Simulated assay, not measured.
Amino acid sequence: MKNRIIVIYLLLVLSCLCTGCVEINVSNPSDIVTEKDETNTETFVPEGINSENWFESIPAYRGTPYIEVNNDIPFFTAEDKKKNDAFEIYSDLDELGRCHVAYANICEEIMPVEDREASLNSVTPTGWHQNQYNGKWLYNRCHLIGYQLAGENANEKNLITGTRSFNVEGMLPFENTVADYIDDNPSNHVLYRVTPVYKEENDLVAYGVLMEAWSVEDNGYGCQFCVFVYNVQQGIEIDYATGENCEATEEISKVDSAQTKKGNTYILNTNSKKFHTQDCSSGKRIGDKNKDNYTGNRDDLISQGYTPAECCNP
């Protein structure tokens, strides 16, 4: 009797396989294609940003890679902050070939699943006059929306001429902040907008970018910033009208040297022994019990046992 039951069971399984009632579905993440917003046909102008309201208050570069704008509160409208759908919008190049606003709702759906491989050399952004100083190239092809956030690589609408410092010390820490937030909250979205700022109407190289972020589902609590990042390289003088560059004059070098000697002001977490930039939103949320301020040389602070906070990379 027992053997008969086993035979009947095997016949039922075989019948299911033959009639297709058992389905095996194996998905490869690299085969998943996400639809991107390709509807923009003209330069996208973000609401709520008026250069007269904020850019005139930006001080000249004095050694720090970025400065907080609008009390670190992005200029997104109330309607913007309700968006929880995935999208990417890249402004068309203007008549000079320059990039303008790049705007996206960052989420797992549009983030790349593979490491970047393709070269950026096929794109030559405006003002690209490359030179080496002390054995290092001055310029990078800088993504407005970083590859790790949206998977856009050699997109001419998303690449500007930027210095090595601008790219690595200025923009990258904020890109990492957004990426880390999505990694920790894979179902959430971060409104993210990067606006190149040209000091003069026909400048080919941006003086810097306004970077804004707002985590949608938690109303900005988990990820929020609004900063202006300077497109500069210490010791190098850049003609933003053309992109031409040279070693800074003695007078400019003295300003850079004085700032370096003076040091910067940092926010300390005396409990975790981490230090943050003065404008870091995470640093500002440290409780009074564990919070302290320090003005001085970064290396001296590290020698005292403190380490740079990864969220702002001071």
Score class of each variant (00 low, 15 high):
residue 278 Q to D: 12
residue 276 H to E: 09
residue 273 K to G: 04
residue 277 T to S: 14
residue 269 N to M: 03
residue 257 S to M: 12
residue 279 D to N: 08
residue 287 G to D: 14
residue 288 D to Y: 10
residue 262 K to H: 15
residue 273 K to Y: 05
residue 272 S to F: 08
residue 260 T to M: 13
residue 283 G to N: 06
residue 291 K to A: 07
residue 274 K to D: 00
residue 270 T to S: 13
residue 295 T to C: 12
residue 280 C to A: 08
residue 282 S to N: 14
residue 294 Y to V: 09
residue 285 R to P: 05
residue 268 L to D: 02
residue 268 L to E: 01
residue 288 D to T: 12
residue 264 N to W: 03
residue 271 N to L: 09
residue 267 I to R: 06
residue 272 S to G: 07
residue 261 K to R: 03
residue 297 N to V: 11
residue 291 K to P: 05
residue 266 Y to M: 09
residue 276 H to D: 11
residue 266 Y to L: 09
residue 263 G to E: 10
residue 271 N to V: 00
residue 284 K to W: 11
residue 259 Q to L: 12
residue 272 S to Q: 13
residue 285 R to F: 07
residue 271 N to A: 13
residue 288 D to P: 02
residue 282 S to Q: 09
residue 286 I to L: 13
residue 272 S to V: 05
residue 289 K to Y: 10
residue 271 N to T: 13
residue 292 D to H: 11
residue 285 R to T: 15
residue 296 G to K: 08
residue 283 G to F: 06
residue 273 K to N: 04
residue 267 I to Y: 00
residue 276 H to T: 06
residue 262 K to D: 10
residue 268 L to R: 01
residue 263 G to P: 02
residue 275 F to Q: 03
residue 294 Y to W: 10
residue 281 S to M: 11
residue 293 N to T: 15
residue 269 N to K: 00
residue 294 Y to G: 13
residue 297 N to K: 14
residue 292 D to Q: 14
residue 280 C to E: 09
residue 283 G to R: 03
residue 268 L to T: 00
residue 288 D to R: 08
residue 266 Y to R: 01
residue 280 C to R: 04
residue 266 Y to D: 06
